[in-house]
Amino acid sequence: MSVYLHSAGTVLPGPPIDIASLAEKFDLPSVWGQWVESFIDNPYRHYSVDLDSGKLRFSLADLATTAGERALAAAGAAPADVDLLVMGTSSPDMLMPATVNVVADRLGIDDVATYQLQSGCTGAVQALDVARRLLGSGEHRTALVIGADSCAKHLDLSVDVRSLPPDQQVNGVLFGDGAGAAVLGVERGAHGVELLRTRVRCVGRGREPGQTLNWFGGADRHADRPAAVEDYKAVQDAVPPLAVQTLDEMLDALNWDRGEVDYVLPPQLSGRMTDEIHARLDVPDAQEVSCVRETGNTGNALPFFQLERLLPRMIAGDRAVGVAIESSKWIKAGYALEKVDA
């Protein structure tokens, strides 16, 4: 059974925060901002926390609910139409209840199958994969798929950033908060864009994680373990070739040549890394659909920002391939779309 992408909707909390504002907030030297612009090139990010007051303005459920509402409105669908809800996040508000179920309640969705994936940068594709397969089974007709992340638990406004190791400083400027959602269905819908294929592969056997996020409970909350660690060299070295492999595997499975791809949606780590990966994907005739320079790295939400930009641009016959790579335990993921009807 064919599955179609009906809409995408997104939300970014608060105003865009630029590098100069971060440097001023954390009393960092001017050369710090110049380095970040040169080597990271994520000019903006948005935070759920108000940087001046330190107050949390939006929970993850708030962001995910807004993104879900926007995707439903864009699809012309009502909450009652949704019979499957899938969400990916690395940063749930709580371990229980799962945020997806809080979002279902907020949206007025009830008595449906819900799934939350504990996931990183491939979470959106994993969620699309689960939804596509369940819709394809014929048991469901309309799915709301959500990806959302928040740095709020990690954004310590009292920290002396200059005393942090550079890799932790860089982690702080890479990521921002945001949520995205898509409505999928078995009907063709207004766009006529078919989600032809989704592919997810964990390739972490025997490999150390490139990114680690800890969680703490009552017994170990004071444990001397860092909340977040990134092996930036491993990420820098491994992500581009994994992205190329993923694109090759997708094209092989679809029997498409590189020249037949009209749009490519590359992984969105940072402006600079995305440029490098896009060049290595070697699809010069395809238009790139990227967002990270405007949104910051919003983790599980990123592909929805790309899809939101892609959908109005596609015309009948257009083909698009997206790639996402997760550097925690190394997951490669891809998805392919084709506009089959005007």
Binding site: S30, V31, W35, P166, D167, Y232
Partner: peptide, 24 residues
């Protein structure tokens, strides 16, 4: 040596000398 070390070195230099250093 890598670019991340350059970040640490430049911020340390600017802190120690009190003078701006041009990244370009």
């Amino acid at each position: 040596w890598d670019s991340m070390h350059l970040l640490a070195l430049l911020t340390a230099l600017e802190r120690q000398t009190g003078r701006s250093i041009s990244l370009p």
